[in-house]
Design a protein around this nucleic acid. Structure first.
Length: 108
DNA sequence: GTTATGACTATGG
DNA sequence: GCCATAGCCATAA
């Protein structure tokens, strides 16, 4: 068991597990959170990240299309470059190569 | 109680 | 590819 008590803590815990050079999506985190707590939505994940995302590698959590909101792209791009995250033209994360599935890794 | 809002997503034109 | 719409669900006013 994880010892996680709050829903938001679970989201942050998953985000913290994303390995460098990879990324996951709001939707996937929401899916895992829903399996483990019975509720959750991508929108809710975004709310948590907006509030407490500063405590985790937030740039590894992207939208379903690999992008982030405009105000975060510049900062995220710097991290991607230093981590070697595969990108697509335009600066979005290349999810075809970089996607990390929390469901796959969650058995650990 | 209802409305508006948000680091979302899927679908259809 | 872009834009609009509809679902989504917790929070704040």
């Amino acid at each position: 068991m994880t010892g996680v008590t709050d829903w938001s803590e679970l989201v942050l815990d998953i985000a913290d597990d994303v390995p460098p050079g990879r990324a996951t999506t709001y939707g996937l985190i929401a899916e895992v959170a829903r399996l483990r707590t019975g509720r959750g939505s991508a929108r809710r994940v975004g709310s948590v990240m907006a509030r407490e995302g500063g405590a985790v590698p937030w740039w590894r959590v992207v939208r379903a299309d690999g992008t982030l909101p405009e105000h975060l792209t510049a900062r995220a791009a710097r991290h991607y470059r230093s981590e070697g995250t595969p990108l697509r033209p335009g600066g979005a994360v290349d999810l075809a190569r970089a996607l990390w599935d929390p469901l796959e890794d969650s058995d650990a």
